[in-house]
Amino acid sequence: MNKYENKAQPVLPGIIGNNPTIHKLASQIQKIAKSDRPVFLKGATGTGKELFANAIHQLSQRLGQFVAVNCSAIPENLFESLLFGHEKGAFTGADRRHHGFFAQANNGTLFLDEVAELPLIHQPKLLRVLETRRFSRIGSNEEIEFTGRIVSATHVDMSQLVEDKLFREDLFYRLNLFELDIPSLEERRDDIPLLVNYFAKKERNITFSPCALEFFKYASWPGNIRQLKNTIDKLSVLAENDYLSAHCIQELAVCEPDETIISKLAREIIAMPLSNKLKAIHDALVEEAVSITEGNKTQAARLLGVHRKVIERKLQQIRLKIIPNHFPQTDRKQG
């Protein structure tokens, strides 16, 4: 059992993490969840915005449904029908009454994902519902009260869209009374091993060596948590064994190292008070690789991407340096 397996405690319904940013976000959500005010989620693609929206819904203890709508997938000519519903005979093909998303989310939560994709022509209609809390089906004069809550999300810069007149400023301010930033995986790298174990147990119950978890931690994840989960799903199918080392992951080529992390580490090393930084880090890498592989020089060489002889030569140099230091001063003089 590795050190991350017992730490997957949810900070919110359906969400785990130990990162301080996640804990701060969870604390904010717990405070605002029971309000009926709109919430606006900002975050890159794949950060789990819908999961956070669902968590808000669950904590709100609302009796209605959680209805998720991808605004970018709504055909412009069907916008009103899908959101507000229509009566039978309201237009050609309307052979029965249809309850739109607003009606479905009454007493619940309507999640408008990718809200920035809403056509400008339809934005006043959404604004009116937010202002009056009432809507009508197409073909009906009856006004229906909207008793649900709006949670919206996007991965783009809404302030820029407003400035470019591509999104109504008044609608934007109606949507983001509570604005929450969903962190990228880059901002919560310390949660990656925890998430890897969590996703792995949902699949084939595969497990990873400590070095493999560190490999994931410093890999590149432009697709954020969604990409990480997809990678673990892929490994559960491709892996020949249930226990995976860092070498196995490298061979399967499911992810790549993050060059920005390497640059950051290089800057930190350069700032260290070491006389010969290259030698110190070279020695430390070899010793750590040998330690991780419990003395297996072949596996240590694979981890570092070098030949076994490089490991043997470096270990010999390190030992020659260390061994004399253990001799008494008098013995060294006599030798």
Rank of each mutant, 00 (worst) to 15 (best):
Q227M: 10
K3C: 04
L41I: 08
E294M: 11
H98I: 09
H307V: 12
G305I: 00
P13Y: 01
L112Q: 06
I29V: 15
E294N: 14
F84W: 05
N19E: 06
F135C: 02
I16V: 11
T231A: 12
L130Y: 00
T293N: 02
N325L: 15
Q316L: 13
I182V: 15
N197V: 01
I225S: 05
V306E: 04
L195F: 02
L303G: 00
N276Q: 11
L180R: 02
R168V: 01
S245V: 00
S60G: 13
N77Y: 15
D95S: 14
H282S: 15
E114A: 08
L278H: 13
E143V: 03
S27A: 15
T47D: 07
E259F: 04
L25C: 03
T293G: 02
N2M: 05
L110A: 05
D170L: 00
V151W: 08
K309T: 14
V129H: 03
Q9G: 05
R302Q: 13
D258T: 02
H122V: 01
E87D: 03
N325P: 00
A90I: 02
Q317S: 14
T109A: 09
E5W: 06
S275P: 03
S152E: 01
E145M: 12
Q123Y: 03
D113V: 01
R319M: 12
L112T: 06
D283Q: 14
V69I: 15
E186A: 11
T92N: 08
K3A: 10
V306G: 04
L51D: 07
M158F: 03
F111T: 05
C248L: 09
A53C: 10
K3V: 08
D283V: 04
T147E: 10
T92D: 06
E312I: 12
E80M: 14
